[in-house]
Design a protein around this nucleic acid. Structure first.
Length: 223
DNA sequence: AAAGCTTACAACCGCACAGCA
DNA sequence: CTGCTGTGCGGTTGTAAGCTT
């Protein structure tokens, strides 16, 4: 689908809008390779793209990033989304951090098309592969019980994550380390925690641009 | 076969926040 | 302290493709 959509190309104040062309993608990829992520408002000047910074950032984050996982959301990922949404609500970026390769936009879209509908038809919800509302209540009770206060993640969630990201190879190593660390009862050790966060960010790349707010977002749900 | 409906997803918008001069 | 700029986030929209009637 995607690039075939025909949003009319609009030029407003010199900025192009609408669907990206492969040439624009190429320019943006080249820009990121040479200058790194960030400084999005400089993209137009440095790359020749007639796109504003926001548009460039969005295109990169949601579509061009090399670590993106394409394809359908798996049932395991769906379970994680359900669980994390029950816990955090519409904090899509927070949820996305637990699903490497998935973007907040992707998860948000998935939620809207799948679960919003299910909310309206409770009977179909029970038939799905997702946990029933009763099961979810149990999970949430577990979550509340543990409350992440001692930096523990419920084993149910960790099982899903471990199943989802079983390998320790290459880019996923950091993530798995992160989850294993969380599952460790001794992981309340603050040092281990921050080690894990550094590791996570390292994997996500461009650690240098990670702001305090980003780290706070990362930590907040567990604190 | 055609019309209407649903799903999927790319992209935009407005707001909030952090950092910096 | 204040205003500006850059960035991130959540909500929303628009449209192609697929499905149903």
């Amino acid at each position: 689908m995607g690039s075939h959509m025909s949003w009319g190309i609009i030029e407003e104040e010199g900025w192009r809008k609408g669907p990206w062309t492969s040439e624009e993608d190429r320019l943006l990829i080249h820009y990121v390779r040479t200058h790194g992520e960030g400084r999005w408002n400089s993209v137009a000047r440095l790359s020749g793209l007639k796109r504003n910074g926001k548009s460039c950032r969005l295109r990169w984050v949601n579509y061009l990033r090399p670590d993106l996982k394409r394809g359908q959301i798996t049932p395991q990922e769906e379970n994680i989304i359900l669980e994390l949404h029950a816990r955090w609500g519409n904090r899509w970026s927070t949820i996305a951090r637990s699903l490497p390769g998935r973007t907040d936009n992707e998860i948000k879209n998935y939620w809207r098309t799948h679960f919003k509908k299910k909310e309206r038809s409770p009977s179909s919800h029970q038939q799905s592969q997702s946990p029933s509302s009763l099961e979810m209540k149990g999970m949430m009770a577990l979550l509340e019980e543990n409350n992440y206060n001692d930096h523990k993640v419920p084993s149910t969630l960790l099982c899903s994550m471990a199943n989802l990201y079983p390998t320790t190879s290459e880019s996923e190593e950091g993530h798995f380390y992160y989850y294993s660390m969380l599952s460790n009862n001794n992981a309340s050790n603050e040092e281990l925690w921050w080690d894990g966060l550094w590791n996570l960010d390292d994997v996500r790349g461009d650690f240098s641009t990670t702001t305090k707010a980003t780290l706070q977002n990362l930590v907040a749900p567990y604190c």
